[in-house]
């Protein structure tokens, strides 16, 4: 009897501890974002006071307007949207095509190709930064280059250079293959007997069945590409017109050295975070599923 009581008491304690731990963690997750928003609303006088005023008494909502009028934010935003959507679309096309071939056809070398897809995911991105930079820089016949790859600037400072390295990802191919595997073979065979050619089968019969997979991959690529910094920064360092929001904000950091201007920087940071947050909160169901399918591959 005493044991049962003890375990009952421990269950109540555990319930308190459980929500206590989760709440404490949640505060640590959220407070930094609130701190950023408050910072964006602080007036120069509040920033320069010693100690600075924490709660903005006179919230400077105008900072969110100034971000667009005084900084090239509109241009950055456009680049972010354009590049993110282009990469997302390209990956949906290439991943679903390759994933379908690997899932539903038998052909010479299929297993070897699939093993390469799995193995290639283990190569870290840092290994590719230098060679891909110079492959694009000295790409034959691009950007004024001759056949030998010199003479012009190649793909340097072009959208192509930002987008192309992300046009296909091994992860995307792997993920779509997993979704295509769930499509019954009988359905495809029946369509063949009806005389449909392979492309019509893919487009009209199979693809509609993997829309959840496309949604998963789409949202995953969207979030990844919106937040991509290292490659975009490397390739657009000398091309301010092509920079995305995070890259632009980082490379313009020299403009925010004065304490009074830092509210504007924090407002710009908030603008770079909001689109992806809204997208994520709206579609998180698909996002989580994509990550699970990709992470636990063993």
């Amino acid at each position: 009897m005493a044991i049962v009581q003890a375990s009952h008491r421990s269950a109540i304690l555990w319930r308190i501890a459980k929500y206590g731990i989760l709440s404490l963690g949640a505060i640590i997750m959220v407070v930094p974002f609130i701190d950023m928003f408050l910072g964006a609303l602080r007036s120069p006088a509040e920033r320069l006071a010693r100690p600075p005023v924490y709660w903005p008494g006179d919230p400077q909502w105008i900072n969110f307007k100034r971000v667009f009028t005084e900084l090239p934010t509109l241009n950055w935003l456009w680049n972010s949207v354009y590049i993110t959507l282009a990469v997302t679309l390209l990956q949906l096309v290439t991943s679903s095509m390759a994933g379908y071939a690997l899932a539903k056809y038998r052909f010479i070398g299929r297993n070897m190709i699939f093993r390469t897809v799995l193995g290639a995911q283990m190569f870290p991105f840092f290994l590719f930064i230098i060679p891909i930079f110079f492959i694009l820089r000295y790409f034959p016949l691009a950007g004024g280059n001759g056949l030998d790859g010199v003479g012009g600037s190649g793909f340097l400072n072009t959208y192509t250079a930002i987008i192309l390295p992300f046009a296909v990802t091994w992860y995307g191919v792997f993920l779509m293959r997993q979704f295509f595997l769930t499509v019954p073979d009988e359905l495809i065979e029946a369509a063949r007997l009806d005389g449909a050619n392979e492309f019509r089968i893919f487009w009209q019969i199979v693809l509609p069945l993997v829309v959840p997979g496309l949604a998963t991959l789409g949202i995953f690529v969207f979030v990844y590409q919106w937040n991509e910094v290292i490659w975009t920064m490397t390739i657009t360092r000398t091309a301010p017109d092509l920079q995305t929001l995070p890259v632009g904000i980082y490379l313009l950091r020299g403009a925010f050295t004065e304490e009074a201007t830092k509210s504007l920087q924090q407002a710009a940071v908030a603008v770079s975070v909001i689109p992806v947050m809204v997208t994520f909160l709206a579609l998180q169901r698909y996002y989580i599923r994509g990550l699970m399918a990709g992470s636990v591959k063993g």
Partner: peptide
């Protein structure tokens, strides 16, 4: 058809995976 489906990935893999590894 499967070769056409997989062609973009193979071309990409050659230019942005195998070539960079050798080049690096």
């Amino acid at each position: 058809a499967p070769w056409i489906f997989i062609a973009p990935m193979l071309v990409f893999g050659a230019i942005f995976f195998i070539l960079p590894l050798l080049y690096a």
